[in-house]
Design a protein around this nucleic acid. Sequence first.
DNA 1: AAAAATCTTAAGACTTTCTTAAGTTCCGCG
DNA 2: CGCGGAACTTAAGAAAGTCTTAAGATTTTT
Lengths: 230, 230
Amino acid sequence: MNDFNVLVVDDEKEIRDAIEIYLKNEGITVVQARDGIEALEKLDEQPIHLIVMDIMMPKLDGISTTFKIREQKNIPIIILSAKSEDTDKVLGLQIGADDYVTKPFNPLELIARVKSQLRRYITLGTYEGKRNFIDLNGLTLDKEAKEVAINGDSVKLTPIEYKIVELLMSYPGRVFSINDIYERVWKEPSYNAENTVAVHIRKIREKIEIDPKNPRYLKVVWGIGYKMEK
Amino acid sequence: MNDFNVLVVDDEKEIRDAIEIYLKNEGITVVQARDGIEALEKLDEQPIHLIVMDIMMPKLDGISTTFKIREQKNIPIIILSAKSEDTDKVLGLQIGADDYVTKPFNPLELIARVKSQLRRYITLGTYEGKRNFIDLNGLTLDKEAKEVAINGDSVKLTPIEYKIVELLMSYPGRVFSINDIYERVWKEPSYNAENTVAVHIRKIREKIEIDPKNPRYLKVVWGIGYKMEK
DNA sequence: AAAAATCTTAAGACTTTCTTAAGTTCCGCG
DNA sequence: CGCGGAACTTAAGAAAGTCTTAAGATTTTT
């Protein structure tokens, strides 16, 4: 269960954190949001493969949020709620949720359900909302095969190099600070990691650029970070 | 919700009939089976798009039956059980069930879950997203005969070897981490299984590759996993 | 009981990652 | 303009991690 991002939406920090700990343990990355509004923001910022969502929340509740998400994307949603009355379950499933877990819940059950849904997605081959193939002026990325090619010629990247390229290519033109890059690729807070990232950028340029000194694809934005040219 | 066949497996006639009435009302056709053995028979006789299965049954129980079915097909299975203990839920989901409903259940909830699963299938476009015969540059896989051949010459694989090959060949070009492979073939969380998988990969290469040291089909993607070349 | 299949261990080859340190470019300010 | 410092680039090698392979122990099947 690698490389999956799960968005956990709940107004209680303890619950979010608890779920995060369990999912991390399974190699799943967790992104947290406190309410529906925040959830929709996070959804725009990064690829999310599954959502665990509380129903009772301030601002925008779980049912409404599910509705809004369903208008755009087909990500699996697991509803989490204190209410255990049947009508709510039925409502949750009818509006397009894929599963339903009632509080208090056994963490193992939630994890099993999360994994069950994610497994289904692997089987399908594509996760919705995540494009599997990107082409930027001849530089191509195949997320399934984890393959990068330049004008059709496959480029051999190391795992870290690949992840950096995938991140940058997934959001063409968007600038990522060294810190952003570090945290998203290494999935841990960055500390003194400036050069580490820089070295990898160098290696990547060596492989994907015709003239690494005058990069055409992987550009620096002085004082801010790096980006992949659109 | 038309043209769907749902197999209801339970030893109590009243339950089977009750479910049938509700599902029929939704335009869904129901096929009944009294136990696991009968279920497997019905599965062979006609197209079934979803299974609702009790756990406690004579002859062949629900968990074992689910296991047997999963070896062959990828139909959605909803487990139905009197036990509501968490461990059973987790077990049910882990062995490959897609959902879990505890008795006594609200018929409306069961129907909602059935429809939710079926809806997913409609979305997918295919009932069974699995092709039965695959040919990748001369390496062929026949899922019905469980046979792998290279340029027509049948290759003798052990069960585990076969499952690994089937997994990889079913998604050509897609990279699977060792963990993914382990979890999907062994159907249990992987722990210290790195070498186990590696050894099987080795054996497979010995059998399907002309030059195992320079594999043409079963490739490694450094630091990430293995894949079958498209 | 023999044969086949699976798992474990471990060593060596190979690849990747990180660190350090030095070089270069860019930007603002006198 | 050109100087100084900050930001970025580059190189090289040590450390860490991954993959392959072999051999034998254990379990399962025949």
